[in-house]
Design a protein around this nucleic acid. Structure first.
Lengths: 226, 226
DNA sequence: CCAAGTTAGTTGCACAGAACAACGAAGTAT
DNA sequence: ATACTTCGTTGTTCTGTGCAACTAACTTGG
């Protein structure tokens, strides 16, 4: 096994990481897109991403986090690998391009993604538009659709991504958050029953959210591994 | 965007594809392993795999299929991407190794995986053993565990992988097939109800499987896209 | 020929989870 | 005080699933 299959005998693909950051803008699920400053696809919108740096990165997860930090000015622990895509025609800059795609969910209003290195502009765009792929660079429309599907599947199972939940919240707030992420209404009693059965949240003793109406009990995430 | 992020400016990882082929040997779910002929991990068992060839492959799916053909002498259309893993210490032959892992399911008894190029020996091994990772090269124990989990999830949803279903079958045969893949018994009436509700199979008019007991209606997969 | 055994295929029932609907409770606004 | 909103709970219904029983059809062993 020292003939082929050995490093450096074959040319390797241009390897990048792309990050699909989802977040709520108002009621709607949006995705964070970067306007490409240079060719290819100059002026078009694409997922923010960057090249793998084998001198810096100790794993793919680590690389994705670095790219997110550099490009978006965000250092969030919640990144999940979505898929990998590759081919000779994906990126005209290289004879063969491979992208490992990650996804994340953040509270869009709590972060200010400063446009990082080499990004002309950053903008939230509704996933309903972006998923059609209209005007997006590369195959990023398809990738966004996959990220949304996978994320909504997580939410359906009440597997809430970190980075989206506040420290404390009322059950009503949690429900409307999920509803906006899913894009559909949920049943109040079922939602609460599931939360209680699976012990996903616990009430903060004596803490109430007061406002215009009846005060609501404040909850927080229950720590799984004490 | 012509400075960094551009091909050939950074060194790229040694990129390979690994194939987790699952199949039934007797009643038990097994995985196809290759004995490594050379260092690293010489003599140990590993998932069959091979380097990405950017001069031959038109996509990752295509590359996985080529590797499967070359290494195992199998040309099966059913391959699903599982995940990608990478890091500087995964493979001592390269400063940074990236593996894109695919999974497949085949009827173990219907194929004779001829040991292909550069493989000393091929053998089926029960996943129960392999998943513990004992004695496996690289991080392949973990990868096998993931492939089994993902495949069983497919079967639970009755999303039967191609390559495992015969052209025609009785409902009893289909059920025992699923039971062996899942490693647990299923309820007959629930199983049939689900098949009927979702219109996954259709009876072949007049075709019966006769044998030692009462003859059984023969079914076939319903074609989704006519 | 008959009884026993095995698999095929269906039916009824119990239970769990979820959707749907309604209700009282507790606050604010007018 | 009354209307209105959100909170929180409690029923009722519906659906899907698991469990069990039953009949049907065939082979095999006496």
């Amino acid at each position: 096994m020292n003939a082929p299959g050995t490093p450096a005998r074959h040319q390797m693909p241009f390897t990048r990481l792309e990050i699909a950051v989802l977040g709520l803008v108002g009621d709607e699920l949006n995705v964070l897109l970067a306007r490409r400053a240079a060719a290819p696809h100059a002026g078009r919108w694409a997922l923010p991403g960057g090249a793998l740096r084998i001198d810096l990165d100790t794993s793919l997860d680590d690389a994705a986090r670095r790219v997110m930090r550099e490009r978006l000015g965000l250092d969030l622990p919640f990144l999940r690998q979505l898929c990998a895509a590759g081919g000779p025609t994906r990126d005209p800059r290289a004879p063969w391009a491979l992208s490992v795609v990650y996804r994340a969910v953040v509270s869009a209003d709590r972060i200010a993604p400063a446009a990082g290195k080499r990004i002309e502009a950053l903008a939230w765009r509704p996933v309903a538009d972006a998923m059609t792929g209209s005007g997006l660079a590369f195959d990023h429309g398809e990738l966004i659709a996959r990220a949304v599907t996978a994320t909504r599947l997580d939410i359906e199972r009440l597997d809430m991504p970190e980075g989206i939940l506040p420290d404390s919240f009322t059950l009503g707030e949690l429900q409307t958050l999920c509803e906006r992420l899913l894009g559909r209404r949920l049943d109040k009693s079922s939602f609460r029953r599931k939360l209680a059965d699976r012990r996903l949240v616990e009430p903060v003793a004596g803490a109430l959210r007061t406002g215009a109406n009846r005060p609501a009990q404040i909850y927080r995430r229950v720590c799984d591994t004490p």
